Amino acid sequence: MSLEIQYITKDNQIQAADGRDTVPYDVTFTWYDYNSFDDKEALLSDFELDRGRLEDEATKRYRPQYYNFDDYQLLICHVINSETFEAHAVNIFVMQDIIITYHDGVLDDFIDIAEIIKHKHEDLEIDIALHILHQTVEQYFDIVHNIEDDVILFEEKHGSEKKGDDITSKMFDVRKEIFRVKRVIIPMEELVEKFKEQDDLFNSKRSESILSKIDSKIDRQKLIIKFSEEMIDEMKDNYISYNTYRMNKIINVLTIISAIFLPLTLISGIYGMNFKNMPELDWAAGYYITLGVMLLISVGMISYFKYKRWM
């Protein structure tokens, strides 16, 4: 079982425990970190939690959630893999003087309990939950900035290219990355709004400050995503417009060629019917006259098309 336990003693010292049985009874705060989705059954046996509300790899929902139960609150947020852009859930259970995290991976880079304890007050568990949420949103900046850089580099590299199936494929790859990130970031805004409505839980100035920072960062991330999305859409539109223009030019040339050969084909068809009563077939210069007429028709049509600026 991948369980890490940290607790705070009466004199505000942070200690680690090897298991639940080794945690002293008189601690002021305890953090249980189940850092593998394989620990689901152990978590449910250690604490009385709602099984149906947990989110892991088997129950991906991709939307941040907040549930307020009688004995605890459950926050579900998501971290984004910077390579695959897959979202992975972080379940945060907030209880009286206890916080439980259930996720896949390690949260060491997300939270510094010692820093939070400096401003310790009665709602430490809520502070830590909001801090994890804040650091999760902070992590999104790395993702959205990478997407923005990819879009700019893509424009610099392929902006002047006019054809190629690989360009379209790369555009769709970038759009897929943007979609995956939006699927996580946009609903996070709804979660923050839910917290703001919980006046009985998130009513301290510190909580309001953290929620305000989270809200502000989400707005900035949405702007970056919108900018990247608009850039890739403009490049896609330019690419489609150019290829449509190019295709129209090709069709125009083929249409002109067909129009020129249409009367020539008609003449060839008439004199290819081999009827006996066709006086022109007995003319000594009939062949040359027919070629001359066909040449005059071709030159006349080409001149007319150029006059009309159709070619």
Rank of each mutant, 00 (worst) to 15 (best):
E190T: 13
S169I: 12
Y307R: 10
I111P: 00
K236R: 15
S45K: 10
I99A: 06
V27Y: 00
M1F: 01
I178G: 00
S258H: 02
G292N: 05
Y102Q: 13
D104V: 08
E197W: 01
T255E: 05
D38Y: 07
T136A: 13
I302W: 01
I302D: 03
F179S: 12
I240Q: 15
I92P: 11
Q65F: 00
I267A: 08
L223S: 12
D282A: 11
V253H: 02
N91T: 10
L130A: 11
F227E: 09
A285N: 13
N12A: 06
Y67V: 14
I289P: 05
I185N: 08
E115A: 08
L124G: 09
Q135Y: 07
I152Q: 08
D109W: 06
D108N: 15
V106N: 13
T59I: 00
K236F: 06
L266N: 08
P279Y: 03
D97M: 05
L254F: 03
D233E: 12
I147A: 01
Q198G: 04
A285L: 11
K236S: 15
K118R: 09
R246N: 15
Y67A: 15
E55A: 05
I267N: 09
R309I: 04
I178Y: 00
D173S: 12
Y102W: 10
F227D: 13
T30H: 02
N252A: 14
E197G: 04
D97T: 07
I210D: 06
M171L: 15
Y288S: 14
Q221M: 14
S169V: 12
L130E: 14
K306W: 02
G164I: 08
V106S: 14
V23P: 03
Y67I: 13
S209H: 11
I128T: 08
S2M: 07
L296N: 03
F275K: 14
Y66N: 04
I143Q: 03
M171V: 10
I178N: 00
K170L: 13
P187F: 03
Y245E: 14
S298H: 03
L201C: 09
F69Q: 15
D112S: 11
D46S: 15
Q198S: 11
T28A: 04
G300R: 06
E155R: 14
R51N: 07
L49Q: 07
A129K: 05
L43W: 01
N243G: 09
I113V: 15
I267P: 03
A129Q: 12
V79R: 11
K120S: 06
I186C: 04
S212F: 07
D21W: 01
V137G: 07
Y239I: 07
Y32V: 05
Y242M: 09
N277K: 04
L211P: 02
I98Y: 02
I225S: 01
